[in-house]
Simulated assay, not measured.
Amino acid sequence: MWGSSSFELAASYAVPYANIFPMSIHLEMTRAIAAVITTPVITDIDAGFGSALNVSYVMI
């Protein structure tokens, strides 16, 4: 099992961990990880986009 988080995303872009990336960037990173592995990916998209509509968008 693999995971992705906003901390890892910030580190990969060499910026402070301050939740400055939009959810679309998190999704891009998670989809890139999922494209190259066969195990489940758990992601922590906590950039302030936690409404029910956004959860359904992420799950599709």
Score class of each variant (00 low, 15 high):
residue 55 V to A: 13
residue 15 V to I: 15
residue 45 I to E: 00
residue 31 R to F: 05
residue 50 G to M: 01
residue 60 I to R: 13
residue 20 I to D: 12
residue 51 S to E: 04
residue 5 S to K: 02
residue 1 M to G: 06
residue 22 P to C: 04
residue 60 I to N: 15
residue 16 P to S: 12
residue 20 I to S: 14
residue 21 F to R: 00
residue 23 M to L: 13
residue 3 G to K: 04
residue 6 S to R: 10
residue 55 V to H: 05
residue 32 A to Y: 02
residue 24 S to P: 00
residue 20 I to G: 10
residue 40 P to M: 01
residue 25 I to Y: 02
residue 53 L to Y: 06
residue 42 I to S: 11
residue 43 T to Y: 00
residue 40 P to N: 05
residue 32 A to R: 12
residue 33 I to K: 06
residue 24 S to W: 00
residue 23 M to R: 13
residue 13 Y to F: 14
residue 60 I to A: 14
residue 49 F to I: 01
residue 46 D to C: 04
residue 39 T to Q: 15
residue 34 A to Q: 11
residue 37 I to E: 11
residue 15 V to Y: 01
residue 27 L to W: 01
residue 22 P to W: 00
residue 55 V to I: 10
residue 25 I to N: 02
residue 17 Y to N: 15
residue 1 M to T: 08
residue 28 E to Q: 10
residue 20 I to K: 08
residue 9 L to D: 02
residue 22 P to I: 01
residue 5 S to G: 14
residue 5 S to A: 09
residue 27 L to V: 07
residue 35 A to G: 11
residue 59 M to T: 06
residue 25 I to K: 03
residue 2 W to A: 04
residue 43 T to K: 00
residue 7 F to D: 09
residue 23 M to N: 08
residue 59 M to R: 12
residue 35 A to N: 09
residue 32 A to Q: 07
residue 33 I to V: 15
residue 36 V to S: 09
residue 19 N to L: 11
residue 18 A to K: 11
residue 28 E to Y: 09
residue 13 Y to T: 04
residue 26 H to I: 00
residue 33 I to R: 08
residue 22 P to Y: 03
residue 40 P to H: 01
residue 35 A to Q: 13
residue 47 A to I: 11
residue 24 S to N: 08
residue 58 V to L: 08
residue 31 R to H: 09
residue 26 H to K: 02
residue 45 I to M: 07
residue 52 A to E: 10
residue 29 M to S: 02
residue 25 I to P: 00
residue 15 V to H: 01
residue 14 A to T: 06
residue 4 S to V: 12
residue 11 A to L: 11
residue 53 L to I: 03
residue 28 E to M: 08
residue 32 A to M: 06
residue 11 A to C: 07
residue 36 V to H: 11
residue 59 M to Q: 12
residue 23 M to D: 13
residue 30 T to I: 15
residue 7 F to T: 12
residue 16 P to G: 06
residue 47 A to G: 15
residue 47 A to M: 12
residue 5 S to R: 00
residue 59 M to L: 14
residue 19 N to Q: 12
